Simulated scan of single mutants.
Amino acid sequence: MTIERSLVLVKPDGFQRGLTGEVLRRVEAKGYALRALAILTPTRGMLEQHYAEHQGKPFYEALVEFMSSGPVTAAVIEGEDCVKGFRALAGATNPTDAAPGTIRGDLGRDWGTAVQQNIVHGSDSLESAAREIGIWFPQL
């Protein structure tokens, strides 16, 4: 058994639309446990650390601006293979391509904005999860 931890963010678009409860319901319905939970508006410094691999890319500034535009819900989830599992639950990055039954497929759409507003973020690897959890929940 491989119990993992992953960072899940309900991004400003999802928070503003009141989707935090639905996202967390789906996480728990999938069988993952919530280990930490916070509502905050991320600072530029946090986002620069979180998105360090994207610095210098054309979408970087718009992404940081979007992610700092309002509150997000940050959660640490735990469970068997939860990094891969949550990403499957979230669906394709582009909500238009996301399958029905996924968070993005059911709740997201293309809003025609400079940055994809796709409701959630989930860590993409165990290494990313450890790094991201350290940024959002340094006390863990």
Rank of each mutant, 00 (worst) to 15 (best):
V83C: 13
P71R: 09
T20R: 00
E127M: 01
L19F: 14
M67E: 14
A52M: 00
A98G: 08
K57F: 13
R109I: 00
S128G: 13
T73K: 01
D81S: 12
N118C: 09
G85R: 03
T113M: 15
E4G: 02
R26I: 07
H121Q: 10
R35V: 14
V72Y: 08
L37R: 09
I3T: 14
D106V: 12
G70T: 04
G21H: 11
E78P: 02
V72D: 07
L107H: 04
Q117P: 10
G108R: 11
D13A: 07
D124W: 06
R109P: 00
F15H: 15
P100E: 15
G70R: 04
R44D: 09
A90H: 06
G18H: 08
N94D: 15
E65L: 09
L24N: 02
Q55T: 14
R5K: 15
M46L: 14
S6D: 01
A36P: 01
F86N: 11
E61L: 13
L40I: 05
G79S: 10
K57I: 12
E4T: 06
T96F: 13
L126C: 01
E65V: 04
R25M: 02
V72R: 06
L107S: 06
D124M: 05
S69L: 10
R25G: 02
T73P: 00
G31Q: 02
E48M: 11
K30R: 15
V115D: 02
T41E: 14
G18W: 04
Q139I: 00
A129R: 08
R131S: 11
L9H: 10
L34F: 06
T113S: 15
P138R: 10
G21D: 11
E61G: 03
I3D: 03
P58I: 12
H121K: 10
E78F: 06
K84Q: 14
A129K: 07
L63A: 14
L19K: 03
P58T: 04
G122I: 03
F86K: 11
L47S: 08
T2H: 08
H54V: 09
E80N: 06
L89A: 04
L107C: 07
Q49T: 02
Y32L: 07
I39H: 05
A98D: 07
A99I: 01
Y51E: 10
S128V: 02
H121L: 05
G91T: 12
L140E: 14
A29Y: 00
D110W: 07
V10T: 01
F59W: 13
T96S: 15
S123Y: 02
E48Y: 05
A130P: 00
N94H: 15
G112R: 03
S68W: 05
A92V: 02
L140S: 10
L126G: 11
E4S: 08
E53H: 14
T43D: 08
L34G: 04
T43G: 06
V83Y: 11
G101M: 05
V64Y: 05
S69Q: 08
R35L: 09
E78Y: 03
E132R: 08
G108N: 12
E53P: 00
G108E: 01
F66V: 08
